[in-house]
């Protein structure tokens, strides 16, 4: 897999490190000369110095053969143009843009960017939804926020501990998808009994999210 990343900052450094360790071929495009030098010294990636929304720079970075591009500069307008160029001129199959203004998530989608991620939206929904629950260790909105995936820790006070999934009347449109128990990963069936300290991966809709929480933890929001 060949990935182009346009942007800078610490995020880029750690992203590159993660991708490289997975064996991906990474090329970074960055406008800041000093940062380019630093990145190329510290990472096994190709670094191209220049404006990522310039087609010549994209071509130099190998846009014609890239499998994916991440546009994660701090400017929404740059990320939009980068992804549009990548899609229309270089036919990169997967384009991902970061948006800063959460409204732009929808705007980008309407302008043809398949994946637009808003860190503002992700962070704010994380904070809102886990504010009162220490048991929720992870929560990700997927499908434009139409589905929530959360990781929930069952403590001994939970009303569902000791019950089989079949006996728990889970609210409609919700699913306990996976149970993480010690080092085991269990895809549960109706007869699976929930235990204290189980970590459940639960899928819900945003509407019934609090119902599901109440059912599994016994607490209300």
């Amino acid at each position: 897999m060949k990935i182009l990343i346009v942007g800078g900052g610490k995020v880029i450094y750690f992203l590159c490190r993660t991708f490289v360790s997975k064996g991906y071929i990474v090329t970074v495009i960055n406008r800041d000369h000093d940062e380019c030098v630093r990145l190329s010294r510290r990472l096994k990636v190709t670094v191209v110095h220049g404006d990522g929304s310039d087609p010549q720079i994209l071509e130099e970075a190998g846009a014609f053969t890239a499998n994916a591009i991440l546009a994660i500069t701090p400017n929404d307008e740059d990320n939009l143009v980068i992804c549009q160029l990548a899609d229309l001129q270089f036919h990169i199959p997967r384009t991902l843009a970061l948006v800063n203004d959460p409204d732009n998530e929808e705007v980008f989608r309407q302008l043809g960017i398949k994946t637009a991620l808003s860190t503002t939206y992700i962070l704010s929904s994380l904070i809102e939804q886990r504010a009162s629950f220490d048991e929720i260790t992870n929560l990700i909105p997927v499908g434009e926020g139409k589905v929530n995936v959360m990781e929930l820790l069952l403590n001994e006070n939970s009303p569902v501990v000791g019950q089989t999934l079949r006996d728990i009347a889970m609210p409609e449109n919700s699913l306990v998808a996976v149970i993480l128990r010690d080092d085991e990963t269990i895809v549960p069936r109706g007869a699976t009994v929930l235990q204290s300290a189980d970590r459940l991966i639960v899928m819900t809709l945003p509407e019934n999210y609090s119902q599901v929480l109440k059912k599994l933890t016994g607490e209300s929001e």
Binding site: S53, N75, D76, E77, D78, L80, V81, V107, Q110, L111
Partner: peptide
């Protein structure tokens, strides 16, 4: 004075 700003604003005005 920023091309990308102009291009983005133009698209939003037109399409949305």
């Amino acid at each position: 004075h920023e091309d990308n700003v102009n291009v983005m604003v133009a698209q939003v005005a037109k399409k949305l």
